[in-house]
Design a protein around this nucleic acid. Structure first.
Length: 476
RNA sequence: CGGGGAGUAGCGCAGUUGGUAGCGCACCUGCUUUGGGAGCAGGAGGCCGCGGGUUCAAGUCCCGCCUCCCCGACCA
């Protein structure tokens, strides 16, 4: 007897599928204020794994965690012209406090360049103070008119790194180090999303940056998602906030800054890059629950055997959870864990136990095989390794197959209905109908995601457009 | 801000020519179940967005207000 679909099929309505997964996998729901979001325990458990993996890499790159205020004097934003222009439409401003109108309105941080800059100005005095690398885990607010859970919410969680360097070259190298060793490494090796790396066009650049580097992933509907950005800020903020230092020769200089961030939007990447019609598929290295040991029914010593398997798995360093909720039907629990995307499920039933085995089910491929109880831990570890590789490989194939070489703006229109298009950088500057190529792409709902060298490698910060390739796509 | 819809149980919805509130899912209790969303029986749950008006009587008709959703310009 055919049950109705658990989720709206992706092929039928991808945005609806996305909303269904977020709700049914118990990741998040909307808050009472438009654009706000409640992250539920399972969603937050995944985010905590994202944080842990990113935090380790950020610290390995030499940055230290700190915390700066949520409230920023409005005047700080006016000090850097491009920055204020870019952010003013989406600021939330507090005008009252303690029952009184405030002397100066206070901005709820949309990002912290300004307030951190004001402290860097105090802390940086000498070239010996540099480089100074800080990171903070925080919430930020950017007023949104079109919210989508995780992808675009008024308040979101992220990490933002802020560094000061003695030279432009040092700042440049550091921003690339973060891009590759923190973001790209995490996304490929943990999230199993094969990202493209490159430079943003002037139009897509962060407000106040001289250069923005980004990682971009392809979702299962062929649209692009920006997943982590690293900015070279030049000396603009240093001049605005007086971040100066004496160099070895006793010369007063302005510091070169960078900033870089990745947000809860990565949850959207996880969902849309790997999820299928049965729900989430969480890569094992990320999964808060790598294995669920499911008691089929409470007879024949199944509960005891399952508990022993969980203990053995945990002993071996596997994140395992026991599901003994036999007051709920077997099928319901299976569907529930599939929705949540637990990479491996071990089914422990009386029939299996009689044979001295359990059934190992893989979420990524749907395969089920009986394994001997004595080999369960080893088989689970093998399955987790294979699932991690297989999810990445599947996403890589999709990215490859969904990327088309084009030579004109017009060709991009069709190509970007289902994936990415690569066009010569020179096309972006080519004018027609009174618009340049990038504007014509934008007019048809397509944006330039990245500029790369033709072989896909990173360009120089100032490399001429004519020597580069533009990756264009519809984007979230 | 411009155009189009909707407000009824936790969620999704129905509610006829006005007659005092219903369905599915979820929830609670009991029994039987549990190897891919269990079945049966019983039960709980409502300021019908808010305010006014018409009427013997308003979820339904009239007026006003509020809120939310969808579509067009920016954004991780």
């Amino acid at each position: 007897m055919a049950k109705p679909d658990v989720l709206t099929p992706q092929a039928q309505d991808f945005p609806q599928w996305y909303q269904d997964v977020v709700a049914k996998a118990e990741l998040a729901e909307g808050g009472p204020v438009r654009g706000s979001m409640v992250i539920r325990p399972y969603g937050y458990a995944i985010w905590e794994r994202v944080q842990a993996e990113l935090d380790t890499r950020i610290k390995a790159a030499g940055a230290q965690n700190a915390y700066f205020p949520l409230f920023i004097p409005e005047s700080y934003f006016r000090r850097e012209a491009e920055h204020v222009e870019g952010f003013s439409p989406e600021l939330a401003v507090v005008t009252h406090g303690g029952g009184k109108k405030l002397e100066e309105p206070v901005v709820v941080r949309p990002t912290s360049e300004t307030i951190i800059g004001s402290y860097l100005a105090k802390w940086v005095q000498s070239y010996r103070d540099l480089p100074l690398a800080l990171n903070q885990w925080a919430n930020v607010v950017r007023w949104e008119l079109r919210p989508r859970l995780f992808l675009r919410t008024t308040e979101f969680l992220w990490q933002e790194g802020h560094t000061a360097h003695a030279s432009e070259q040092d700042a440049h190298l550091y921003s690339l180090r973060i891009l590759r060793d923190v973001y790209e490494d995490f996304m490929v090796n943990v999230l199993a999303v094969p990202v493209l790396v490159g430079r943003k066009t002037d139009k897509e650049r962060f407000a106040g940056a001289t250069t923005t580097w980004a990682t971009e992933g392809m979702m299962r509907d062929g649209k692009a998602l920006q997943m982590g950005t690293s900015h070279e800020l030049g000396q603009g903020f240093s001049r605005a906030f007086g971040i100066g230092f004496l160099d070895e020769e006793g010369q007063q200089r302005h510091a070169w800054l960078t900033s870089w961030g990745a947000s809860t939007r990565l949850m959207g990447a996880l969902i849309m890059a790997h999820g299928d019609d049965h729900g989430l598929r969480v890569p094992p290295r990320l999964a808060p629950v790598q294995v669920v040991v499911l008691v089929v029914k409470a007879e024949g010593g199944t509960a005891e055997a399952a508990a022993a398997v969980v203990a053995a798995l945990r002993e071996a360093g596997v994140r395992a959870e026991l599901d003994v909720r036999t007051d709920s039907s077997f099928g319901r629990r299976v569907v529930g864990w599939e929705l949540k995307g637990a990479p491996v499920r071990l089914e422990v039933g009386p029939r299996d136990l009689a044979e001295g085995s359990v059934v190992l089910c893989r979420r990524d491929s749907g395969t089920k095989v009986p394994v001997g109880l004595d080999r369960a831990v080893a088989e689970v570890r093998k399955a987790l390794d294979e699932a991690q590789g297989s999810l990445l490989e599947e996403a890589r194939r999709r990215l490859g197959a969904g990327t088309v070489e084009c030579s004109s703006v017009e060709e991009c229109q069709e190509a970007t209905l289902s994936g990415f298009a690569r066009i010569p950088g020179s096309v972006l500057a080519t004018r027609a109908d009174g618009m340049d190529g990038e504007a014509r792409l934008n007019a048809m709902g397509v944006t330039v995601r990245l500029l790369q060298r033709p072989d896909g490698s990173l360009p120089a910060a100032d490399q001429d457009l004519n020597e580069l390739v533009a990756v264009v796509a519809r984007a979230y």
